[in-house]
Structure formats: structure tokens, C-alpha cells
Amino acid sequence: MPAVEIPTTQEPADALAAVAALRRLADQMEDAAVEQAMRAGWSWPQVAEALGVTRQAVHKKHAKRLIAAGVTLRRR
């Protein structure tokens, strides 16, 4: 399949796609960073405070995945 180069421009379509891609990148970084912190023994309140979100929010978003991955979780 021939590849077509699309020049980088500030077209609205490019700018909006960049927003969507950055959200995805941020989500991927958050998943990786939270997992790394919890594997290193951080607690939920510490991770939540570092991310600037509530403990409940970070727990709800990541607990099932980390438990399934076998990460030992500290409560406090």
C-alpha cells in the first residue's frame, strides 16, 4: 500500500486529532505510572495526591487492573 505524507499543519482536523491522541497518551502514561508507583510500594492516597485526584477516583480507575496483574497494594 502506498504511504502518503501529510504535512503537519494547524488545520482544525489536525489540532482536534492531536487532542484525542494526547488524551490517549496521557491515559497510557497514567496507567503505566500508577502501576509503577504501586509496585514500588506507594499507597492509594499518595498516588491520588500526586495525580491531583481523589483516592476514590484513582482506586476505581486502576484497582481491578492492578489486582489482576498481581500487584501487592498498600491500603495506606
Binding site: I6, T8, Q10, D14, A15, A17, A18, V19, A20, A21, L22, L25, Q28, M29, D31, A32, A33, V34, E35, Q36, K64, R65, L66, I67, A68, A69, V71
Partner: peptide, 23 residues
């Protein structure tokens, strides 16, 4: 390509890849 518009790349992902959701 979309990340590059904002000056980013997946090379920014330097941490080990996160585990996937169990479901």
C-alpha cells in the same frame, strides 16, 4: 502523526507498559 502535531511522540512513554484490564 496526530501526536506529532502537538510536538509529542509515543517515545514519551518511557515507563514499562501497563498491564491490560482483566476484562
Amino acid at each position: 502523526h496526530s501526536l506529532s502535531v502537538a510536538g509529542f511522540s509515543t517515545a514519551a512513554l518511557t515507563l514499562p507498559r501497563a498491564s491490560v484490564e482483566p476484562k
